[in-house]
Design a protein around this nucleic acid. Structure first.
Lengths: 108, 108
DNA sequence: CTTATTAATCAATTTTTTTTGATTTTAATT
DNA sequence: AATTAAAATCAAAAAAAATTGATTAATAAG
């Protein structure tokens, strides 16, 4: 007999998994705060974010990695420093224009 | 001495908490799938969603409650039935127009 | 009144995520 | 070469979220 069609379309399934990952990355108070700090300051190294976040270096690295893996932020290494900045393109694809107030410097 | 100003603005803090909740609610494959099913079928009772999700009743109730608490879906009780539907307003405030393809019936 | 149906809730368990502190890696400085 | 600094990684512990199966509550139907 034929397949049951109770299963989700595999393409859709793949999309849901993709967005699960991205939303999971931004579904965190602290990470939203990091994003907001990057909004206001542009590209920043970890050592400059840390004091603003009042967060240990290892903890901050952990959260930055989650945002980076989800492509919410971008990273550039210069010497011993890692500079992070928001991936505006990604955010525009993901969030409503109204959330721009939080994550676009021009809005507030 | 004065306060340190290392702490976040309380208004912002409150906003981050609000969005943490909303993004957490949609940061799940299964819940995105539920939302997609509601997109395609409009208002549905739990007993009609369950077979499409291949999910136990108690598990489905759990996930619906999370979406409901985050105001992503709305609920209406008729007799013993609970009918759920998407809260389009909320989604429009939250998600990019491009994500409409997933959560607006007119788009796909 | 009794039985059946729908869906919410609960407690216990399992799984996932986050936190912590230490260690490692890489590069810059002396 | 030795020291310092920045940041990533790791393993263990703690915390949070999801799953399971059973129970409960509310309504409908016989």
């Amino acid at each position: 007999m034929k397949s049951e069609m109770t299963n989700q379309n595999p393409t859709m399934d793949h999309l849901f998994e993709l967005y699960e990952g991205k939303f999971k990355a931004i579904a965190d108070k602290k990470r939203l705060q990091i994003m907001n700090i990057l909004t206001q300051n542009g590209s920043m190294c970890v050592c400059d974010i840390a004091p603003l976040m009042e967060m240990s270096q290892s903890k901050l690295s952990y959260h930055l990695k989650i945002l980076l893996d989800a492509n919410i932020i971008k990273k550039e290494t210069k010497g011993t420093w890692s500079f992070y900045e928001l991936n505006q393109d990604e955010l525009n694809h993901l969030l409503s224009p109204e959330l721009c107030c939080l994550f676009k410097p021009t809005c507030c």
